[in-house]
Structures are given as structure tokens and as C-alpha cells.
């Protein structure tokens, strides 16, 4: 559902708000959501992220969600997430609504993992589940959960970006991306609930390990044949995901009762995998150990014999 406008703001453009008269200097484009473009901007030597859209209603509706979340104090943050809301009179004579938010430094989940290694995935995944549980506590579904909307900073700390899809429980999900969508995979409705995000999370797990085959699977199946079972089959064929099979089955089939339960079982998987990797000793190492023990015994025996 792209409703974006075509122009780009060149670096150095000064955006002055129509109502509050604050000025921001554009540094570069950070990303693009369905409701607008997000730029890195600077004001009084501080960095912010600015989302600028073409449609006042669409953008305001997103701002409402951000304000509701802020008011409910669901997310423990020292600085406010939403900084300012205003309009910009573009050079084309039209007015463009924008809002300014805190700038979050970080890489998208896929970029982070390809740079730092897949061993970071369990930690990042866990903190993503915690983030979702904060939202769900206020009865909000994130909606458009996907690798591009998850920013990871150092040590696997996670922030969700693009709140355009955030929907109150029980309403129809406002924005989604097909491949992560529960409805697209014939796995349930497009009504907002905890299970909707968990389904997308499940797809995300497959996406980070094998994006290519996930896309190929979605492209090759007839619409009526898309199912969570097909996703699970794909997950089973990825060795790293096999131990997570039970967890994924619950996420994709929608049998977790809430995110907390999902997070607990995620922890159990983390514990199992970290425990397992230290207890499993390769065969050659066992052989080497036996050999060196035998050598030690022989040496001691020989030493004792010669010493005596």
C-alpha cells in the first residue's frame, strides 16, 4: 500500500515547521514506510528522525498511535519518542505533514546479523519478543513486523520502527507485508491480536536464515496451497532452525496464548542450545583425550619406575 510521493529532499534542505517554526536540516534518507519517508535531520546539534508524508490523515493516524503509546507509558524510555508534529510547505507549493522522533542508531536486523553473525539471533529475537510484549500489554499489535522494521544496536538491543501498522487488538491490521501476513499464508485472520505478531515473528525467523528460499516458496505455491505447514517444512530443512521447530510450530499455527509464553519458551530454547554446544564434544576430541590420558599414565608409570 504505497501512497508515497515521488520527490526526495536533498541533503542540506532546511525544513521549517509552519506552526511551531522549528528548523531542521536534512542529512540523508533513512528509510521509507507506506505513509511517508524518514530522514535523518539535525537541529541544534542533535540528531532526529523525521517522517514526512503526503497525506495529513494517514500520518496523523500514525501519530495518534504513537501518542497513545506514550501516554500509556508502556515503554520505559528516558527521552520522549515523539518530539514534534508540524507541517512543511514544500517548494512545489503543497503542504506536507511531518513528525519528528528520536533517532535510533542501529542496523536493520538482517544487516546486523550478516555483520555480527547468526549467534546474535537468539538474543536479538528475545529482546524483540520483550518489545512486543510491552506493546501487547497496552493491547496493541505491531502489525507490520518484518526484518526492515527491526533496528538492532550494539549488543543486540532492539527497537521497532515504523508504527504505521500498529493496530488496537480486535481491529483490522492497518498495514502488513504479504510474506509476513497470517492471512496470506491461510493461517488466520487479519484481525489484530497477539498471535498476529507472533506469526510474523515466525516468518521472520525463516527470513533471517534463508530469505531466498522463503521468497521462492511464496512465489511457487498456489494461493490456496500456502499454509503454515509449508513454512514449517521449509524451517525443518534449515539445520540451524531445527531445534526451534516446536517453537516455530506454535508461532505459525497460532497456539501460543500470548507473547510472554512465547518468550519463556524462547528462553528455554536459548538455554538448550547454549548448554548443548558446550556439552557436545566432537569425537576426535574424545579420542585425543583418551590418548593423552594414556600417555600421561605411561609417563607417570615410567617416571616412577626410573625414580625408584
Amino acid at each position: 500500500m504505497t501512497t508515497s510521493f515521488d520527490w526526495r529532499l536533498p541533503r542540506g534542505t532546511v525544513i521549517r515547521g509552519k506552526w511551531k517554526r522549528s528548523s531542521y536540516r536534512v542529512e540523508r534518507l533513512l528509510g521509507e514506510g507506506a505513509n511517508g519517508k524518514v530522514y535523518l535531520v539535525e537541529r541544534q546539534r542533535a540528531w532526529y528522525a523525521m517522517k514526512i508524508g503526503a497525506d495529513a490523515v494517514d500520518l496523523q493516524s500514525e501519530i495518534n498511535v504513537l501518542q497513545a503509546i506514550a501516554n500509556a507509558k508502556l515503554v520505559s524510555r528516558s527521552e520522549p519518542y515523539l518530539v514534534e508534529v508540524d507541517d512543511y510547505s514544500g517548494t512545489d507549493g503543497k503542504e506536507y505533514p511531518f513528525y519528528v522522533m528520536r533517532y535510533i542508531r542501529g542496523a536493520t536486523l538482517s544487516d546486523f546479523l550478516s555483520k555480527r553473525g547468526m549467534e546474535w539471533f537468539p538474543v536479538a529475537g528475545y529482546s524483540l519478543l520483550v518489545k512486543l510484549s510491552e506493546l501487547h500489554a497496552g493491547r496493541w499489535t505491531f502489525g507490520d513486523l518484518k526484518a526492515e522494521n527491526v533496528l538492532v544496536s550494539d549488543y543486540g538491543r532492539v527497537e521497532l520502527v515504523d508504527y504505521g501498522g500498529v493496530t488496537a487488538f480486535g481491529k483490522s491490521v492497518r498495514q502488513f507485508t504479504e510474506i509476513y501476513d497470517r492471512g496470506y499464508w491461510n493461517a488466520g485472520s487479519r484481525s489484530a491480536d497477539a498471535g498476529y505478531d507472533l506469526f510474523s515473528f515466525g516468518v521472520l525467523c525463516i527470513q533471517v536464515y534463508d530469505a531466498r528460499r522463503l521468497a521462492a516458496l511464496a512465489g511457487s505455491l498456489l494461493p490456496q496451497n500456502r499454509s503454515p505447514e509449508e513454512l514449517l517444512k521449509l524451517a525443518q530443512s534449515i539445520p540451524a532452525l531445527r531445534p526451534l521447530g516446536d517453537w516455530l510450530a506454535k508461532a505459525l499455527r497460532g497456539t501460543f496464548s500470548n507473547v510472554e509464553e512465547a518468550a519463556r519458551e524462547w528462553q528455554q530454547w536459548q538455554r538448550r542450545t547454549s548448554g548443548r554446544s558446550s556439552s557436545v564434544v566432537p569425537r576426535w576430541m574424545k579420542g585425543l583425550f583418551v590418548a593423552s590420558a594414556a600417555l600421561l599414565a605411561t609417563t607417570i608409570y615410567w617416571l616412577l619406575r626410573t625414580g625408584a
Binding site: 506552526w19 495529513a56 490523515v57 496523523q60 493516524s61 501519530i63 495518534n64 508540524d86 505533514p97
Partner: peptide
């Protein structure tokens, strides 16, 4: 139009519109 309203007043109007759309 909605665009003519200052941002603070837009919020409430859009909330009603969202509710009606749904």
C-alpha cells in the same frame, strides 16, 4: 479541511475518522 487545523486539533478528528472507517 483537516490540513487547515493545527496538528494538535487534527488528532481528535482523525481518531473519529479512523473509528468510523473501521
Amino acid at each position: 479541511s483537516i490540513e487547515e487545523l493545527p496538528p494538535e486539533k487534527r488528532g481528535e478528528v482523525v481518531r473519529v475518522m479512523d473509528e468510523l472507517s473501521e
